[in-house]
Structures are given as C-alpha cells and as structure tokens.
Design a protein around this nucleic acid. Structure first.
Lengths: 121, 121
DNA sequence: GTCGAGCCTCACACCGGTGTCAAGGTGGGA
DNA sequence: TCCCACCTTGACACCGGTGTGAGGCTCGAC
C-alpha cells in the first residue's frame, strides 16, 4: 500500500511515517515512480511504534527492540551482538521500572477517583 | 533543605528542580536571602515526578495528578472540578494503555533475551 | 491536455525537557 | 578581608517528535 493508506489505517501523519523510515524503524520499497510501497504488516508495526513512543521510548531504542518482536521470533535470531544484548537487558529493566512506576501512579489516581466518586455523592 | 541537598538526594540537577518549580510541580519557601527551602517530603515528590516524566507524562498532566497522590489522600480532597475529574479519568486510561503496551513489549524483549541466552549457549 | 490528488524532498519552526553559561548576591572559614 | 561554595535569575542552545509549507513529479479522470 502507499503512504496515504498506511497513514489512514494507523492514524499517523505521512510526515511521521517518513520520519520513522528515516530513523530506520520501518522500511519501504519504492515503485518506479519513487512512491513508497508498504507491506501489509507495517500497519501493526507502526501501531507498535506509536505505542512505544507514547510509552516514552526514544526511536533509537525502539529501533533496537523491534527486530526482536517479529512473529517468527524463535526462527531467525538477528545477529545479536553482546552490546546489543546488554542494551536490551538494560532497556528491559528500564521498562519494568517504568511499568511499576506507572502502575503505582495509575492506581493512586484510580483510588482517588474511586474515593471522589464514592464520597457522599 | 536547600536546593543543593535536594539535588543530591534526588539525583536531579538544580536546573531541573527550578524548572519543576516553575512548572508548578513543587513549591519552596524562601529564606530571607532568597534561597529556596524544601520540606523533607519533597524528596519523594521529586522522585515521583521523575518517574512520571520518564514514563512519558508531560509536566502539565503531572501537575494535575500530583495533588491526588499525597499520603493523607482521603482527608483533604482538593477542589475537584468536573473537568479535572474528566482529565484524570482520561489520563488514567491512557496510563493503563501505556502500561499494557509496555508490558507486552517488555515481555517480548524478555522472551527474546531468554531465547537467545537459552539457545545452544 | 489539463486538473487535481497524491506522492516526493527539503527546510524551517515549535514545544517540552534539559544542559550550560553569564553575572551577580550570600555567607562561612582561613 | 578575601575566597570559595552555594545560591539567584536569565538567556541561549540542543535534541527528539511533530507540523507545515514550498516546489516539483506522477497518474488517473475528464
């Protein structure tokens, strides 16, 4: 599909899609006329990227993480250098801390909302 | 305590502490000489702010959330306007989605790491 | 052939979080 | 008294994610 369709289906501006490509997060083939061509699975990938970005990860980390997140994961391990594994481990731990922190605060907000809605009203 | 101590204890630059104050996330009294004075509990609060920022929330949202996260929560409900409750509800849901997304991806990374470490090595 | 929609690249601009530096006040110890 | 560490405000600058617009090409429909 072309960029317009991908843009609509992922609710992501064309600008951003080009940016993600520039950052190496997604790839596209080109038609003879220079138009980008996207595979069907890019839809999911873009949504995943958005989610990770929204979760606070920078593109350069996402770029490292994405290759591990493909479906037939166990089959074609990319060439995992020790540094990359270290980065991934580090990042996984960061994510865990982030998750814990988010959960704590989400629950606090939730409790608060419950309390407010439940009080004398 | 003064800004230097708070900075050390929270591992946060003085610059950022002033910025957080400027954004209304923390408050300080002033000594006659103009120096900022911080209460003991600011340490926890700053750490919480850092966590939320790191989790991807912008300061203006954190500012709204923080008042709900104080210890004697059930006691002094701040004046919760309907708009604010709506914002909080919205943000809570965003946090939940973020959490889910982070967990999914964290687990995927984790699985990948497990697979790599477990394969023929 | 021409018009419009969609695509291309390039570039400037914004905003939020943060670093850094300048110029200056404060205050305790040698 | 002087020095140094610490504080103040203010400004400029960066980086990453994103918007926007200019100038130009492509392609299908009329």
């Amino acid at each position: 599909m072309r960029i317009g369709e991908l843009s609509e289906r992922t609710d992501t501006s064309r600008r951003l899609l080009r940016y993600y490509e520039e950052q190496g997060l997604i790839i596209s083939s080109r038609s003879p006329n220079g138009y980008r061509n996207y595979e069907e699975n890019l839809v999911d990938r873009v949504l995943q990227i958005r989610g990770l970005l929204d979760a606070g990860l920078p593109t350069r980390i996402i770029k490292q993480i994405l290759p591990c997140l493909n479906k037939p994961r166990a089959i074609h391990f990319p060439d995992a250098t020790p540094e990359m594994l270290a980065t991934l481990t580090l990042e996984r731990d960061r994510m865990t801390r982030r998750i814990d922190c988010l959960i704590r605060n989400r629950d606090a907000v939730s409790e608060y909302l419950d309390a407010v809605s439940g009080k004398r009203g």
